[in-house]
Design a protein around this nucleic acid. Structure first.
Length: 482
RNA sequence: CGGGGCGUAGCGCAGCCUGGUCAGCGCGCCUGCCUUGGGAGCAGGAGGUCGGUAGUUCAAAUCUACUCGCCCCGACCA
């Protein structure tokens, strides 16, 4: 961008310091703020509205696939958490404990849920009796607490909001099918609503969920070349069913352990949106998740309140009636230029300018947040034209993000190549992998990169493990991650 | 939790080395006038226990110790 297009000040340049830019945008656009407690953030209304706009379609999709919402307790008795050995081992280091209540020390301390498998499975053990009770398809919208060492707004905080689905099935096949179905739901949310392309695949054993048989994930590539895990779907097999004694009587009158899944996605998705689409001027929101899709800025000149404002109000009402999330910025304490910059920083996809000249011509000026390109639209066609522009922006954002992702996904046939890429522009690196934990560990030790996913559609031509040179059994994506 | 950086008005900072009109600047905020097609102008005004605690001293934003928090890079994780 040329210097004369450098309208938004007070934000660190995305290209200069990506981390500083991210924090600037999140705070200046009023998505979130730091709270007095370490690692805990306050989600402000504008940020929460974005969360609602991605939560709602996700919730609709869950319901369409037969899932129902429920709510389970915030606290989990320590003994419950300990029932599944791998599970407690994985989560124990980051659990917050309640040790007293009502002025008395508790007999058994309570974990503030880091995830709810333990408490939910204890209830499922009571509810599941017959094959007729299955499948059990529940989801919970909740907050969880994980005592992380390092925090970043939206990406990693001690407390965060999420949904966690927990299902019970009669067979291993059904559980696997469910696991993959929900992975697909996350992909749909990411790509169709957030305009962020994802790669999906299975996690290696070292990266899988504590207590799961198999973990699948959607992974996004951020502009700094680091991967972001944006949703996970776990096939729990019978691990929890055996630990919590979830059994049902089959048609054949046999007592069987049930098969389970769990899957989750979090407020981290808001952070993914910010990083993926934003630019030096601030946030850019995909129209489908933008709390304000179009902002009307009346040009306040002369007796504008008599001439311009009434027409701006009419347009506002028309667009609102058409189901567009529109805002009329009629504040007279700010100049139009100031408002332009302000709304750009907040990522509003389209600006509608209307001034005295437009009143004469019975038109408005539409300006896209993507490129500031202006188009002059007659009042009569605005109602049809605006949704078209919004749709186009949604598509353009996705295409742009996908082009970046594709450009930054490279093949490495050798260890030297892998190292070279990780030392440079990073990104996703496609490698052959022999499946050995040693090879995986070596990469992690040498360049802090991990296997993000084992690809479900292996590419050809990577017949050897890029680390040890032995025969490859998988094609994987390596990356540094958040 | 290791290495590095930083906490002074809502935000961004100067002052600290060398203790004593150092409680200051810019932006923002409030009031009024005037302006308004890319962050206008003038005038007046409000706002800070200098992150916290303890010490040294006649005197601490400044020196010492401890502590809390934030950011970056690692290790751990959504």
């Amino acid at each position: 961008m040329a210097a004369d297009n450098d309208f938004v000040k007070e934000i660190t340049k995305k290209s200069v310091d990506f981390s500083a830019w991210y924090v600037d945008v999140v705070r200046k656009a009023e998505l979130a703020d730091y709270s007095p407690m370490k690692g805990m953030m306050v989600i402000r209304p504008y940020g929460y509205e974005i969360w609602e706009l991605l939560r709602d379609p996700l919730d609709r999709m869950f319901k369409e696939s037969g899932h129902r919402n429920a709510y389970f307790p915030l606290f989990i008795p320590e003994s419950f958490l300990k029932k599944e050995a791998e599970h407690v081992k994985g989560f124990a280091p980051e659990v917050a404990w309640v040790t007293s209540g009502g002025g008395e020390v508790l007999e058994e301390r309570l974990a503030v849920r880091p995830t709810s498998e333990a408490i939910i499975c204890s209830m499922y053990a009571k509810w599941v009796k017959s094959w007729r009770d299955l499948p059990l398809l529940y989801n919970q919208w909740a907050n969880v607490v994980r005592w992380e060492k390092v925090t970043r707004l939206f990406l990693r905080t001690t407390e965060f909001l999420w949904q966690e689905g927990h299902t019970v099935h009669a067979t291993a096949e059904e559980a696997e099918e469910e696991t993959l179905r929900m992975l697909g739901t996350y992909r749909k949310l990411a790509e169709e609503y957030l305009a962020i392309p994802v790669v999906t695949g299975r996690k290696s054993d070292s990266e899988k969920f504590a207590g799961a048989v198999r973990t699948y994930a959607i992974e996004m590539l951020m502009p700094d070349g680091k991967a972001l895990q944006a949703g996970t779907s776990h096939n729990l097999g019978q691990n929890f069913a055996k630990a919590f004694n979830i059994r049902y009587e089959s048609k054949e009158q046999k007592l069987e352990y049930a098969w389970q899944t769990s899957w989750g996605s979090t407020t981290r998705l808001v952070g993914a949106l910010v990083m993926t689409h934003g630019d030096d001027s601030g946030l850019i929101l995909p129209p489908r998740v933008a709390p304000i899709q179009a902002v009307i800025v009346p040009i306040s000149a002369g007796n504008w309140k008599e001439t311009v404002l009434p027409q701006a109000q009419k347009i506002f009402s028309d667009l609102k009636a058409a189901g567009i999330r529109v805002f009329l910025d009629d504040r007279d304490a700010y100049t139009p230029g100031w408002k332009y910059a302000d709304w750009e920083m907040r990522g509003v996809p389209v600006r509608i300018e209307i001034g005295p000249k437009d009143i004469d011509k019975q038109q408005v000026v539409l300006v896209s947040r993507l490129d500031r390109k202006k188009s002059f639209v007659p009042w009569g066609t605005l109602r049809a034209e605006l949704p078209r522009l919004l749709d186009q922006i949604q598509v353009d954002l996705y295409d742009k993000a996908k082009a970046f992702r594709d450009e930054n996904t490279r093949d490495a046939g050798s260890y030297a190549e892998l190292q070279e890429i990780m030392a440079g522009r990073r990104g996703f690196v496609r490698c052959g992998w022999c499946g050995g934990v040693d090879c995986e560990a070596r990469v992690k030790a040498d360049m802090a990169a991990t296997i993000r996913v084992i690809l479900d559609t292996p590419e050809t031509g990577l017949g050897k493990c890029s680390v040890c040179g032995k025969e490859a059994s998988h094609t994987v994506l390596f990356a540094k991650s958040y």
